[in-house]
Simulated assay, not measured.
Amino acid sequence: MGCEFRYVNELPVGYRFRPNDDELMEYYLGNKVLDKPVPGKGVKTIDADEFYKDPPHIIVKKYNPLSEIGEREWYFFVRHVKKTANKQQEGKKEEIVDDENKRVLLEQKKENQENNAITVLLEQNEKNQEKEEIVDDENKRVLLEQIKKNQENNATVLLEQNEKNQEKEEIVDNENKRVLLEQNKKDQETKATVLLEGSKKNQENNKATVLLQGSKKNQENKATVSLEGSKTSQENKATFLLDGSKKNQENKATIDEENKNVRRVGDRIGYWKSTGIKEYIINGDNNKVFAFKIHFTFYKGIGKITPWTMDEYHFLKSPNQENQRMDEWVLIKIMRGKDYNKCC
């Protein structure tokens, strides 16, 4: 093997590293995955974070200082560190906990809204009762004053009438007049007292009955409207949240699918984009598919296409293969188009 490496390193000027897909997978990526020596120095090793930090022309120049001398293809072993199964399970558990917390929060909000509606109704009822008591007291006071004035006016009228009668009835002596006046006065006071008490009781009973009936109806109507409004609001909120959750899940699935076909480069420098179509590679010895590659194009900024492209090589995994290095390592071939301009 050492002789082969020395032979490759001693090739004359003008030699080009041009392995086909089958050779790249079997002798280069295959040896890298199995931690065996890789032929020659044509493939550079780099971590994924470093590879996707800069645009392709910077990566090529950084790892291949002589890249400007007629070359248009460059090869890299890129190492991807994926999440472990435990971390993925923890992520799923966190999502379940988040969903449960959201459900509990919605139930708590619903309960709080119902309690708040009842509290508001009770407070409003107390305020209405206080206002009604104040109005009743004021009405009673006005009513008593009016009755008092009426009694005084009636007494005045009766006295005047009695005086006129006394002047006309000269035959009646002074003692009879005095007795008559006293008797009339007592009768008037008794009648006034009876009328006042009866009127007061009737007015109080009628007023209280009307006010209580009106208050009960108002309270029942307010409670019905408030509870129906609260239920409708809660149903609308729940529907809105469910619709929003479904839309978020659909958008997330779409974004995840798009992210599988996009490799971001640096901070808004650009991105590699693929159609997601896999081109399968056949082993030349047994004519079986054992690997695949995905073709990417580099876009500068937010979407300016460039002449830079790349092929990303992967092994196909069978169920009985447990080599984690197959997931960690990919082989990438960067290609520069004929209309290359150094600015991109």
Rank of each mutant, 00 (worst) to 15 (best):
L159E: 02
R178N: 02
N139K: 15
A208L: 11
A223T: 08
E197S: 09
L212A: 14
T209M: 05
K207V: 07
Q146S: 07
E133N: 13
A192T: 11
K186M: 11
K200A: 07
N218R: 14
L227R: 15
K217I: 04
N206L: 10
E220G: 00
L181D: 02
R178Q: 10
N218E: 13
Q213D: 14
L159Y: 05
N153H: 04
L143H: 09
V210C: 03
I171C: 03
Q183P: 03
E133K: 13
E175L: 06
K140Y: 04
E145Q: 14
E175I: 09
K217M: 07
I134M: 04
S230A: 14
S215T: 03
S245W: 05
N218I: 02
E175V: 10
E167H: 02
E235F: 08
I171W: 03
S226L: 15
K186W: 13
V172H: 00
E175H: 03
N150A: 13
F240V: 13
Q203H: 13
K191Q: 10
Q183Y: 03
S233D: 12
A238W: 14
A155F: 07
Q151V: 10
E152D: 06
V225N: 09
E169C: 04
K237Q: 12
S226A: 10
E182Y: 08
N162Y: 07
S226P: 00
I134G: 00
L211N: 12
V172R: 11
E228I: 04
Q219H: 11
N165C: 08
K237L: 09
K216I: 15
K148S: 12
G244N: 12
E189P: 00
E163N: 00
E175A: 06
D136A: 14
T232M: 15
T239Y: 06
E145N: 15
N218Y: 06
K200S: 04
E152V: 07
V179N: 11
N176S: 06
K177T: 00
G229E: 15
R178T: 03
K222S: 14
E145G: 06
Q219G: 05
E138T: 12
V210Q: 13
K201F: 09
Q183W: 02
E133C: 03
L143S: 06
Q203T: 11
N221I: 10
N165F: 05
T156Q: 05
N205P: 01
N153M: 12
Q146G: 01
E163L: 01
E170S: 06
L241H: 03
L212P: 01
E228G: 07
E160F: 00
K222P: 03
I147Q: 12
F240E: 15
D137W: 01
E138I: 11
K217Q: 10
K168E: 00
L180Y: 04
K201C: 12
V135S: 13
Q183V: 01
S199F: 02
S245T: 13
I147E: 10
S199C: 07
K207W: 13
L242M: 06
R141Q: 13
N165Q: 07
N202S: 14
Q213R: 13
K164F: 06
D136T: 14
T209D: 10
I171E: 02
E197D: 06
L212S: 11
E133F: 09
K200Q: 06
L212K: 15
N218L: 08
L242E: 14
K207E: 08
R178W: 09
E132A: 14
G198P: 01
T190L: 08
L159F: 07
E132D: 10
